[in-house]
Structure formats: structure tokens, C-alpha cells
Amino acid sequence: MAIITELFYLPPIEYFAAIWDEDVIYLDLEENYQKQTYRNRTQVQLANKTETLSVPVIGGNKKIRTSQIKIDHDQKWLNVHLRGIQSAYGKAPYFEYYFPYFEKVYTKKFDLLADMNLDLLTVCLKMLQSKISVQKLDQCMPNGGNKDIRGLINAKKSYQERSIYKAIPYQQLFGLDFVPNLSIIDLLFCMGPESKSILTQSQKND
């Protein structure tokens, strides 16, 4: 089974619930880039709030293909993201085990957002021990038989409006109330190998 999706930055848990049972992910990198989406932003949980980490891009307000969007390294975002992740999850049970893999991606300082996002997605799937194959969507390929969720996972709307993900609480570091659908790194750093089980339970089968 195969699914067609966009390429997101450290995607939310909902994204992984959507792709979890698939054999192949086809990533559409030739779509027109859209601002204020999961393509360049992710959410993590700090001590007092949920924080959105955004990767600054060049020319994101024009009709540019996702594959051509460049990261704006003139803005000092990289240290902000690394410090933010360390502040949020430095004391998480599996942080020391997983973080070096993510840090290695950041130190490459990619020119293109899609290249960095693809590397990070690959790391996430590896940490989840997933055998899903990741491929770039060929515009000539037939869509017959492939599930297409492009445009469905919208950062501006609640996951509750969609039939993809149901919140399965797990032990987070901060706060008394469980915060659902954060970046997949929240689940990985907090739950480690148990993340696979949480993802399976999080799938909404309406």
C-alpha cells in the first residue's frame, strides 16, 4: 500500500498515524510551497507552554515549488531550534539516545528545506524502526490505488476535525494535562521503543 503526502518538518504525530500502515510514502515536492504550514514548522512542549519552532525560508510567499525552497541561514534559527529541543527534552528518558541523530542532520546546514526535512523524516522513521519506503512522487505516475492525503493535515485546524489521529496520552515531561499531536520527537524522546505501540493505538479507524 502506498500514500501520497507533503513533506513536513519534524511532522506531528498525526502524520505518522496516517502513514503507519503503508509500505511506501510518495512525497510531493513539486507542489507550490505554502507558508504557515507544517512544511517549515513544528511544535514542542516547554515547561510553561507549547512552542512553535519555524525554519525561516527565502521566497516562501511566491509560487515556488517545495523542492526549490531555500532555508534562510541569515537568520539565527538553527541555535534557537537546537536549544529549544534541548530545553524541552534534555531530561526526557530517551533524549541522550536519539538526539545525536537529529543533531547530525542539523550540522549539515542544508541549503534546501526539502533536503533537510527528508533527512529528518528518514531519522524519525529509523528511530521508530519503520520499514516504510520513502520516495519522491513522479508526476507521471498514476494515482490509482494510492491513498492521497495532500492538503488534509492542516496546521491551522485541529486534528479533531480529521479522521486520522486520536490522542493516546503518554508520559510527557511538563504539565498536568496531556498535550496531543506535538512533533513526533515529543513521543520519541519521552517513550522511546514504546512509540510504535502508541502510534498504532493513535490511528483513528472511523
Rank of each mutant, 00 (worst) to 15 (best):
C190E: 00
L112S: 07
D21L: 13
E51D: 10
K157S: 14
L7F: 07
G84K: 03
S163C: 06
A167P: 00
A2D: 15
P11C: 00
I64R: 14
L112C: 08
D148W: 07
L128C: 12
Y33T: 11
F16I: 10
Y101T: 08
G59M: 08
K131D: 13
Q171I: 11
K108T: 09
L182D: 01
F174I: 05
D148P: 10
V123N: 10
T52P: 03
G145S: 05
E161N: 08
E22F: 15
Q139R: 14
G59H: 08
D21Q: 11
K196C: 02
C190M: 03
I64K: 12
I132H: 05
E194N: 15
I25N: 09
D21N: 14
E30W: 13
L7C: 08
Q160S: 13
N154A: 07
I185R: 04
V55R: 00
D138W: 02
D21Y: 08
M191E: 09
N40E: 05
M191P: 00
Q86T: 14
I64T: 15
Q86K: 13
Q45A: 07
I13A: 02
I184A: 06
E103I: 02
K126R: 13
P100W: 15
L128K: 15
N146F: 15
D206W: 11
V55I: 10
K109R: 04
Q75D: 11
Y106H: 00
I132C: 07
Q172Y: 02
V123M: 10
R41W: 00
E96W: 05
L27G: 03
I198T: 04
L182S: 01
